[in-house]
Amino acid sequence: MEITFEHVTHSYNPNSPTANLGLDDVSFKIQDKKFTAIVGQTGSGKSTLVRHINALLKPTSGTITVGDRVITPETNNKNLKPLRKQVGMVFQFPESQLFEDTVEKDIMFGPMNFGASADDARESAHKMIKLVGLDESLLEQSPFDLSGGQMRRVAIAGVLASDPETIILDEPTAGLDPVGRQEIMDLFKSLQQDGKTIILITHNMDDVANYAEEMAVIHRGKLIAQGIPQEVFNNQELLKEDLLTLPKSAAFAKELTEKGFSFEKLPITINELGTEIEQQLNGD
C-alpha cells in the first residue's frame, strides 16, 4: 500500500502552555513494497511520524492516506482493526509491547486478535521465535525474564506473526548484538523482497546504506530531504549544516580526499569504497 502524508502537523498538548510541535507540515509519499529508512536527530519527530501511519496518533491538521484508508484529525478509534492488521509496528521500547505471561502467548496474541485459530497462532509463534534467532525453549518463559536483546527479538516476532503488509520498525536493532543485528536486518530485507513494505527508523547510517532503497530525513518536525541513500548522503547542503551523519564508508572516503584520493560521489558501502580505492591505487 502506498502511504501519503499531506500537510501533516502534530502538536502535543495543543491547548496548553507547554504545547510543542512533533510534526510540522509534513508532506511526502512512502512507496509500496519498498524499503524506506527514516533518519534524524534525537527528538526530531521520527516516532511521532510513524505513529500516524497506524493511527496511534491523529494529526492536528492534515491527512494521512494508507491504501484506501484516510486518517484525519476527526478519525476516531472505532474500526481501526483492519488498519492495525495491515500495518504492524515494532515500538522503540520493546517492553512497552510485551504483556502476556509467557513468550508464546505474547507472540500468539497478534494473530489471534486478528482472527487466527489458537493452533495456527501457536504454530506461527514457533516459527517466528526461530526466525528472530531465539531458542524455542524460551516460549515457556515470561517475556519480562529476558535480557534486553531477547525482549527485542520477541517483540519483533510478535509483530511478524500477524503477517502485516506494512512493517514499521522503530529502532528495531537497538540492543541487538552485531551478529543478531545483521541477521535481523537481513530478515527485514527478505520480507521486503517477498512483497512487504518496510519502514525503518534508525540511527545506524550503515544499515541505511546497506539495506534501504529510499530515505527521508526529519529535522525539528519537518521533512528536509528524501531520495535514494546514495544521493541523500551526497547532499552537500545537509552535510554542511550537520543535519546528517555519513555512513562509515562515506566518512572515511571524505577523509581520504585530504591527500590524493578523489571521489565523484562518496561511496556509502564498504564494497563501493573498496572498489574505488582499488581503482585509484591500481589505476585500472
Binding site: 529502532e171 537497538a174 540492543g175 540511527h203
Partner: peptide, 12 residues
C-alpha cells in the same frame, strides 16, 4: 548499560 543505544551518532 547500553545507555547511548538510542542517541543519534553526534549525540552519542
Amino acid at each position: 548499560d547500553e545507555s547511548t543505544s538510542m542517541l543519534d551518532p553526534d549525540g552519542r
